[in-house]
Design a protein around this nucleic acid. Structure first.
Length: 230
DNA sequence: TACTGATCATTT
DNA sequence: AAATGATCAGTA
């Protein structure tokens, strides 16, 4: 008798189906998953930092490519892997979206990329300690999250503060310390990458592209809630 | 050891 | 160049 593959290669047709498939991945290693998908596992992630995210996208049937859409457009769900250690401590910040530095007149929280990306997220925690070989890293129980009013208020406040600074031409004054739960940091190929922004006199200049990231304390709380529930 | 700034691959 | 997927790694 042949075991049914736990791998889902077609796009899920419902939220429940997606969650069910994700749940069936929990408890298996990245090496096992990659083998079933016929994908080679890198020695480390130095040159393939997004490898785990792409692996999970394929396993769950996310729409391929780098389109400006949620991973599961029909379901309005974004997929995020969450690196944790064996004690369920979050190890990294979570990239949300690139930060527009121009053409933001009229942009509000309601229409922001941050709000829309974080509207509904399927989090897949991965025990991903650096010392652990990539193939041995372990997929944990996924959970679907929608920001509650308090969480959304936190995100909105930080987004507003950071966006206001950008609009005022103070983007280069921003560092990772700003924001309680959401920060603005470089998001680029290297420190020489440039994109257009405006200075405080409204004059265009070239600066490092930035992105919004969720701080680890925030994602840690989301995870803790679900650990208590489960 | 936590955190911020730097960096890597791929696709459009 | 900008979007997708993130983690690396030096230093405070």
């Amino acid at each position: 008798m042949i075991l049914l593959s736990i791998i889902y290669v077609l796009t899920p047709e419902s939220e429940q189906q997606l969650i069910q498939t994700a749940q069936r991945l929990s408890g298996i290693t990245l090496g096992d998953l990659a083998a079933q998908l016929g994908i080679a596992v890198p020695e480390n992630l130095n040159k393939e930092k997004g490898w785990i995210g792409l692996l999970l996208e394929r396993a769950l049937g996310a729409s391929a490519g780098s389109k400006p859409l949620p991973d599961f457009p029909e379901l309005g769900i974004e997929l995020k892997t969450l690196p944790i250690d064996r004690d369920a401590k979050v190890l990294e910040t979570t990239f949300v979206s690139v930060a527009p530095l121009t053409g933001m007149s009229g942009v509000t929280w309601q229409t922001s990329h941050v709000k829309n990306k974080m509207a509904k997220v399927l989090w897949v925690p991965i025990i991903s300690e650096r010392q652990l070989p990539v193939a041995e890293r372990l997929i944990c129980t996924p959970f679907l999250w929608q920001p509650n009013p308090e969480e959304e208020a936190l995100l909105q406040a930080d987004w507003q503060e950071l966006t206001d600074m950008i609009v005022l031409g103070e983007v280069e004054k921003i560092n990772g310390k700003y924001g309680e739960v959401l920060q603005l940091r470089p998001k680029a190929a290297n420190s020489k990458a440039k994109t257009k922004a405006f200075d405080k006199n409204g004059r265009p200049f070239q600066t490092l592209p930035r992105g919004f990231y969720l701080k680890t304390g925030f994602t840690q709380q989301l995870l803790n809630r679900h650990l208590r529930v489960n």
